[in-house]
Design a protein around this nucleic acid. Structure first.
Length: 269
DNA sequence: CGTATGCCCTGCCAGC
DNA sequence: TGCTGGCAGGGCATAC
């Protein structure tokens, strides 16, 4: 389900319900996620949520005694509901608040994660992440500099979390289309000017998607239950065989790095 | 170090 | 209608 825009939309949706409220309970019904949910998540019970932040696609629910770190994987969904709301299938975790509401995690595939991070420490998972794409740390020279010896396809390169975080399959395809770059091209064989444009387009497409409430393909919902509206702006993702909006040639697809990839062979070089 | 592959899971859809 | 195969928005672990 989520790429960075969808995670950010989730963060924006849930944080007003959490911040400055106290966690009354953490209920784990299914511990078998990407990693087993550690017992330590209960340490936050009785403590106030100071902030809800995001690093890459990880959400951090911060308290004075540590943070809950949540990743939504492919199919995770968060909603804020009354704590007495009946359970549905795959409702694995509740973070119950003293307001009577709870943050409920539903994740059919269980590729997601709920972890605990002690104060003033950082989980190893967060150690080797590249810069946030929407900050100045992701500057216009970074892609060019890092790619010089890379032979892998540029699409795999921009989806590498050590290069820049948060660029998932949808937005990698879209940013490359907007930049006129063939996703199959070797990363090391693209020049500085084209990478500058690509950097700009990655930022643009992610920011626009956040503003539109994310992309709903099948089942992504904002925390208020509404779908995201970015899907109508997709130029190539999921459009195999359809006409390119720019040149009317059919959109092609090919698997790159185990992920389906969509592009216009005429517009992207 | 960079690169390629397997795998963790369930749900859904197309095709038979 | 029911079965099967393939595919899905992620990313870690492993092997080379």
């Amino acid at each position: 389900m989520p790429e960075l825009p969808e995670v950010e939309v989730s963060r924006l949706g849930v944080s007003p319900h959490l911040i400055n409220n106290t966690i009354a309970n953490v209920i784990v019904r299914e511990r078998r996620m990407r990693w087993p949910i550690p017992e330590e998540v209960s340490l936050v019970v009785g403590h106030k949520v100071n902030n809800v932040t995001r690093r890459a696609k990880y959400l951090l629910i911060e308290t004075a005694v540590g943070s809950l770190v949540i990743h939504l994987g492919m199919s995770g969904k968060l909603r804020v509901i009354d704590a007495s709301t009946p359970l549905i299938k795959h409702d694995h975790v509740d973070i119950v608040l003293n307001t009577g509401q709870c943050l409920r995690l539903n994740d059919p595939r269980r590729f997601g994660a709920v972890l605990f991070q002690a104060p003033d420490t950082q989980l190893g998972l967060l150690d080797n992440l590249g810069p946030e794409p929407l900050t100045e740390a992701f500057d216009e020279s970074r892609l060019y500099t890092l790619s010089r010896d890379r032979k892998s396809p540029v699409k795999s390169f921009i989806m590498d979390n050590a290069v820049v975080v948060g660029v998932g399959n949808i937005y990698a395809n879209e940013a490359l289309f907007l930049s006129g770059i063939d996703p199959r091209r070797q990363a090391g064989r693209i020049g500085a000017e084209r990478y500058k444009r690509l950097t700009h387009n990655i930022k643009q497409v992610l920011a626009k998607a956040i503003a539109q409430g994310g992309t709903t393909l099948k089942d992504f919902a904002q925390t208020d239950g509404k779908p995201g509206y970015f899907a109508q702006h997709l130029n190539v993702y999921g459009r195999k065989g359809e006409d390119c909006e720019v040149c009317s040639n059919p959109i092609q697809s090919k698997v790159i790095g185990q992920r389906n990839t969509f592009f216009c062979i005429h517009c992207q070089r």
